[in-house]
Design a protein around this nucleic acid. Structure first.
Lengths: 342, 342
DNA sequence: CAAAAAATTTCAAACGTTTGCAAACCACAT
DNA sequence: ATGTGGTTTGCAAACGTTTGAAATTTTTTG
């Protein structure tokens, strides 16, 4: 690992000042044509790369922004990141992606690290632990710096900042309404972990829809999962053993719905004839599994894009930023085979 | 967006020198106990965050490393990243993730950017365009700097550097051998894009296995896809219309295999009775779709971890680094319903 | 009380680059 | 020779931090 060539090295070699080298490499007009060519050729030859770190220090800006997410191992999350990247990368920004694994401690450390690295904005999808604990001290310094902070996907009520989320409530409502409209009456819900906004919003959509149509909200038809496919297996088995077997299952996401479908079939029931299944996320394979999965689509990429635009607005000092912008994107029910009418 | 508080600001406030503040905040022993406490309290109060950028410049090191991948929107790729992160993050490194979208130009720009940002190593999963073009000029400066460079997942023969790949050849071989052992004779292959190492290795495993068992390699049973589920639909339909209909399909990845299964069933055939299907990747849902998908598991996380270890070895100057380390991890066939014996 | 020792603080340089301003150089006309 | 104007180059400061060595203050000791 060699030391990188610096402007000073080149200056020494050519017995000129660093300023001259700097200007030559930047095509400054007041540099002699020959000097410029020689210096540029030499720089090229020795593989000179301008030290961006020093520039960042000089300009007290870094053109980098932090993105903190619970996981990237997931279609939806990575679509969000692609959305942010798609808008900000062409503008010269570098993304600093941090994966918290749903841990408060990591989230907190990452915030500090990003602040310390002088990112110009932070996009944060709050971790589950952070939700549970209700902490937001780790965001205090972000507030003190008044650094652009945008919550993505998961809003965090305790803290005033911009946010882009999707309308989980209406998405869930639509899903359940659809199940009711196809004649289902005993609709179970495989819920996410308690306390998380996504979880609770969808849950609320579920319960309020049932209530609206005069159906009872039965506690025994509501079981928690952790979003993963494995976590749906045992709960689904339980549901199937209820005296009043559900005739539909609404999963908090596609993973859970897929897990439920597997168990249903293993126990000898049919989807959708005996039990309809609806998921959430519209993950890329949902149209291709069998039966294809009815699901609520979340525009992941657009969340990222909108969040990036909010960020860019923050920078625009002409706009007042006193009132944080909240954008709620609509979700869309996509009906497929797994919930066909009976 | 306020200017961050600096050590100088604090020094001015307390009418002392920046050195004192620096030492106080770093708990240097030669600082008076009271001074230290006062300064620390004040720093805390105003939300001082040490400027890592200036430190990076001072120390000419950044503790950050670049990761360039074609996409993160994919279980396997993101597992690799998690593997790298898992090893390097606890050691204080920051990952700088760059997504090329399979474009040479972006890959090239990212290399420059990372070099310019003085990352201490680069993990590169070469983009498809780079493969196609055979370019590697964008890596020249990495070579000149003698910066640790590790190819992940996709090796790049034109350039001498460490690499961690998986044994695609034997994985594919095992998959096809398994199909043959269950009595299949007309095994088709949904191939990836031509020219990519993964594609060609798996293809070689496919052809050589057929040959070994005395089966003909029929061109009309081999069709290209682009890894995505949609790109398998039309090709599968074609396969089904062959006079000699295939009795098995080996997909270059799970996505493609899932697409194939869908078309097979839509056309009225059964999986695995009429046509067996095998994928590659062992993606998390493969056990849960119906029929569950036989697939070759690639240890994505381990690739990342091993790559990180190679990187750490580079740093260890005691080891000679003249001969780049190449690690090939085994892949493992996982048999499920989609290829049950007839 | 002076001198020595210890404790605490400051100075200055360094990391690599850019940039306003001053200085040097050149050619040419007076 | 002197002045003018233009071209080219160099100086020095700045960004924020750390750190060895020097300087200052305080404490201890004889």
């Amino acid at each position: 690992m060699n030391k990188p060539v610096t402007i000073k090295d080149i200056a020494r070699k050519f017995r000129c000042s660093p300023s001259t080298v700097s200007r030559a490499l930047n095509n400054h007009p007041s540099i002699n044509e020959d000097t410029r060519r020689n210096l540029q050729e030499y720089a090229q030859k020795v593989g000179y790369q301008r030290n961006q770190v020093s520039l960042n220090l000089l300009n007290t800006k870094t053109a980098s922004i932090g993105v903190i997410v619970p996981t990237i191992n997931n279609y939806y999350e990575s679509a969000i990141i692609e959305g942010i990247d798609g808008v900000l990368n062409p503008l010269g920004y570098t993304l600093n992606i941090c994966v918290t694994n749903e841990q408060y401690l990591l989230e907190s450390e990452y915030v500090t690290k990003l602040l310390s690295n002088r990112v110009e904005g932070i996009f944060l999808s709050v971790s589950q632990e952070t939700y549970d604990s209700g902490h937001y001290e780790h965001l205090e310094n972000v507030g003190k710096r008044n650094l652009p902070l945008i919550f993505i996907d998961r809003d965090y009520e305790g803290f005033s900042a911009g946010s882009v989320t999707i309308d989980d409530y209406h998405g869930a409502f639509a899903a359940v309404e659809h199940l009711i409209s196809t004649g289902r009456k005993r609709i179970a819900h495989l819920k996410g972990p308690n306390g998380m906004a996504v979880t609770e919003q969808r849950f609320r959509g579920y319960t309020e829809c049932l209530t609206k149509y005069g159906l009872p909200v039965e506690e025994k038809r509501i079981i928690n999962t952790n979003f993963k496919v494995e976590s749906a297996l045992e709960p689904t088995a339980q549901l199937l053993e209820l005296g009043q077997r559900p005739d539909a299952i609404f999963g908090v996401n596609d993973q859970v719905a897929i897990g439920a479908m597997k168990v249903i079939r293993e126990k000898g029931w049919r989807v959708p004839e005996d039990i309809a299944v609806v998921g959430f996320d519209n993950s890329p394979i949902s149209p291709y599994i069998s039966p294809s999965l009815t699901s609520v689509a979340r525009p992941g990429r657009r969340i990222g894009e909108e969040a990036a635009r909010i960020f860019l607005n923050y920078l625009d000092t002409t706009t007042k930023k006193d009132t944080p912008v909240h954008i709620v994107l609509p979700s869309e029910l996509i009906v497929r085979e797994s919930s066909r009418g009976i």
